[in-house]
Amino acid sequence: MRKIRTWLPGLLLVLPSIILIGVFVYGLIGQTINTSLLRTQDFVTDKITNPGGIANYTALLGSDRYQHALWNLLVLTVVFIVGTMIFGLLWAILLERGVFAEGIFRSIYLFPMAVSFIAAGVVWRWLLSPARDDQAVGLNQLFVQLGVPGLQSDWWSANSRMSMAAMAIPAIWQLSGYVMALFLAGFRGISADQREAARVDGATEFQLYRHVLFPQLSPVALSALIIVGHMSMKMFDLIYAIAGPNSYQAEVPATLMWIQLFPQGDPVAAATNAVIILVIVAILVVPYLVHTHRTEQRDG
């Protein structure tokens, strides 16, 4: 080990941040976990509102309402990830060879990312209105005016277990450009020599992508998956802006937490819910962080 005088200043320089992260991230998470295990009793009716301990978790996880919210989250996340990956990769393939006005196309595809979810939600609430035919507005109206009324949809208001797929549309709109940027940079990171070598070997375009380029993009794809996936799991703003604070149809754990905390005035249930969201995100992210950490140790 090196001498303490060499490394101590480094530790001291990072110390303020360690304290801040320690308090604001780990300390507060600890407090939330603590709150989530409390036993509470309504002081007017004397009813037990939260049994306390791990039973708070089994009660919430066992409730139909929470399972419905988790299901919505699953549908949203899967469609969101698949959608952004498809569009992101497609756009990156279209742009990666360098096209005329590439900068303009790239800016257009990327711009939705600059818009806040809350602002985008305002437009998409209107675009995804379920009203039809002569009452139609938004996309349904566009379909009627374009002469394809058959494409009209109830969107996220549909009576279907898959209705949250429609809520992923605005999310895909916002983040596909970001995934495109990731893939684009990935493509640009592959040297021209490798493409040339593949051509010399007589590979077709398809084979070039399939066997030479795509395998090298898998770290990029993994990053994109982690980032888009964790954004989906904590998504609140967009759903709040589109469906309002009280929609069962569009309920996910993050919006339910708001309802638990304020209209229902039950911080213990809200904390339990928040910890579950945290665990779900951790299941996705921690293996990734450990993997990254190990890779770095190995690569020095």
Partner: peptide, 13 residues
């Protein structure tokens, strides 16, 4: 890890 946490998990405290 702090980059990825859902802020719901710290909001109440």
């Amino acid at each position: 890890f702090g980059m990825f946490i859902p802020y719901q998990a710290v909001m109440i405290p």
